[in-house]
Design a protein around this nucleic acid. Structure first.
Lengths: 190, 190
DNA sequence: CGCCGTATAGTCGGATCCGACTAATAGGGA
DNA sequence: TCCCTATTAGTCGGATCCGACTATACGGCG
């Protein structure tokens, strides 16, 4: 038995199966429908790998194989009691304990010096514009969904990323301004 | 030839080699010395794989193999001109274009409902405490380094993550408070 | 009716990443 | 001197992830 599952896609799938049994392809399309395509990386290869891993750990299990027309059988999975317990425990831990995550932007910022002050400020300003667009997009998605009468909790992660992007945007603008004004000194040997 | 390198550890290594030639183990220890252990995931396996990939792409190249005592030879690498160009172009792109990154916390938040209101608020408050500690740690590291006379730019990524953590902390506290006060309604079917 | 684009459903080989393990030397204390 | 630990340096097999590719069915339009 391979070691415990870490892949967050597994969390998404488990969460879905707590609602009702589904077959793999349906899990993917349901997630996309619910705007979760930007929260979880949904990729066919990983999807089927993950379903298998979940089954091997007995967090989910096949409940039936249906056949429509003469297409290959689709296996429908449901969560197990063990699966429900692990889901909640995992979730709890993920919320409580921040873990290291190495985002690409932080990596890049750590070598910002190599761009030289002008190009660095340009790049940060461009990023700020992109972030502003994304924030708009999140805003729209939120308004739409709440407009349809869905509870706020349904899109709570979008509220979070909007907030996080806003903070990143503020930093990018502020830092670009500091570079432009010369108040962030630039060592020569870069 | 495998496709273009994406791994950010490669960015870190290239950046180091722009300063001076090094052998792999030295790259790892230099990065750690400079507090980059939390910006880049430095793991022996990945390190040697990445060095090889960089060499295969001719972004770096071996310049000598030194031998001390009768230990195995250590290969010292230096950047190439191509490497320098790719480094700057890559950096520029990483700063300009936000890319999707699927952090675990966002995944967890998207199923926050499953914890129920009390446990969710507890968990968010605990996270806030952990974040506060990290922010303190970053603060200390910054003060120390600047105290030694290093330029701010040297630790600019720490300034960024401090800012990002602060935003996350604010959100966690605010959301916990909303849950406690009942102003974030909790649907039943969770 | 036949054609074409889109939706459904999934496979497979290879790229990538990881971390437990090996092994030699230096330094320091008994 | 001999042992113990820390540091230096790196290897390897397997776990994981990825995404291009395959293949069938369905709906609409000329």
């Amino acid at each position: 038995m391979p070691r415990k599952i870490r892949n967050t896609l597994a969390l998404a799938l488990l969460g879905l199966l707590l609602e009702r049994p589904m077959h793999p392809y349906e899990m993917a399309s349901t997630l996309r429908e619910r705007y979760k395509g930007s929260t979880f990386k949904i990729n066919p290869g990983s999807l089927y790998d993950t379903v298998e891993a979940l089954a091997k750990h007995r967090w989910i299990e096949p409940v039936e194989t249906v056949r429509e027309g003469n297409r290959p059988e689709r296996t429908v999975y449901a969560h197990t009691e063990l699966g429900r317990q692990e889901f909640v425990a995992w979730l709890d831990e993920l919320v409580r304990e921040p873990v290291a995550e190495y985002p690409k932007f932080v990596a890049a910022v750590s070598y910002l010096g190599a761009l030289g002050p002008d190009r660095a400020a340009d790049a940060l300003e461009e990023r700020a514009r992109h972030l502003a667009e994304r924030i708009d997009g999140a805003e729209t998605a939120l308004a739409e969904t709440v407009g349809k009468g869905a509870p706020r909790l349904f899109m709570i992660e979008v509220e979070f990323v909007r907030h996080a992007w806003q903070a990143e945007l503020d930093w990018a603008r502020r830092t670009a301004a500091e570079i432009r004004s010369g108040s962030l000194p630039w060592p020569d040997h870069f």
